[in-house]
Design a protein around this nucleic acid. Structure first.
Lengths: 155, 155
DNA sequence: CAAAAGTATACTTATATTATAGACTTTATA
DNA sequence: TATAAAGTCTATAATATAAGTATACTTTTG
């Protein structure tokens, strides 16, 4: 069963963006990373990652440089890129059912949409998910990671 | 794309359970419904619904009566059946990624699970979804439906 | 011009979902 | 007791999707 789940594409894309955000903040080197670098570090099939990063680039979340010494880097500060943006590009709308989607609404054929109890519950679910993903930036993620890391070191 | 979504199986199953819950509370007839009745009312392919109801029955959420005048009915009061129970039977674990699943944990292979930022965010998502589904009973759903209906009638 | 790196698209393989079909069992009742 | 109504069970077809692989191309640097 693969429902209510993050796809591998989504997972890999999110991981890659997080790594790029880490790299951008640590001040080392010109904050650009190559596909190969990311794929090795995160154990992601390189050719698959290639597609994913390209998609994120075409969606405006990444910039790239071709040729020798090229690579990918965030198009904006990590604080201005949310998990929701990344997720939607790679996995589509957040809503568990189309009739509650803000981005891709479609009627779902229940006799009375206005009073449909399932729709209401799924709307709550959508809002809960979107509330988290749209309010968590890459900077939030890397900050939390750093906090956890510090906590472990200190114990 | 079918990610982060309710399956048709899940949708149909939830709808059927809600209809059965409505039927149980409205006092009319012996609160039992036939597959055909449900499938017509909710526009669900009858043979598909058959499988779904059987699954829910084998999981202990429904009881049935065979033969002439038979049908399905809720195994417990609508207030004691949650959307989370139904969902998990039909669509599996709620967690968007296995490493944050309470019901079906598996490591997801990130180098350090303890400080993985993606895992942390997805754990929030899981808890948000489970919080809603596990705290919404069929009775809650039918009550909300009735409230909405009353509101429409009164305007 | 050669090598490094991203761009673009097509294809393969595997698996899951969404049904549909058909034969079987139980029960009520004419 | 025969028949029809209703659920049970299992197999299978049709379709869709995901995940990954392959290949050719373009841009850039030195």
């Amino acid at each position: 069963m693969i429902y209510m789940r993050l796809s591998k594409r989504g997972e890999y894309g999110l991981r890659a963006m997080i790594v790029l955000a880490e790299h951008a903040t640590d001040g080392s080197s010109p904050d650009m990373m190559q596909i190969k670098e990311i794929s090795q570090r995160e154990q992601i099939p390189a050719k698959f990652l290639e597609q994913i990063l390209l998609t994120l680039k075409n969606a405006g979340l990444l910039h790239s440089k071709m040729g020798v010494g090229g690579g990918y880097y965030l198009a904006r500060p990590a604080s201005e890129i949310t998990l929701g943006q990344i997720f939607r590009i790679l996995d589509g709308p957040v809503a568990p059912i189309k009739c509650v989607s803000q981005m891709a609404y479609e009627p779902c054929g229940c006799p009375n949409e206005e009073t449909c109890g399932l729709r209401l519950a799924m709307s709550d679910v959508r809002n809960a998910i979107a509330g988290i993903l749209d309010n968590t930036s890459l900077a939030d993620v890397t900050r939390r990671q750093a906090e956890l890391q510090a906590h472990i070191v200190n114990r």
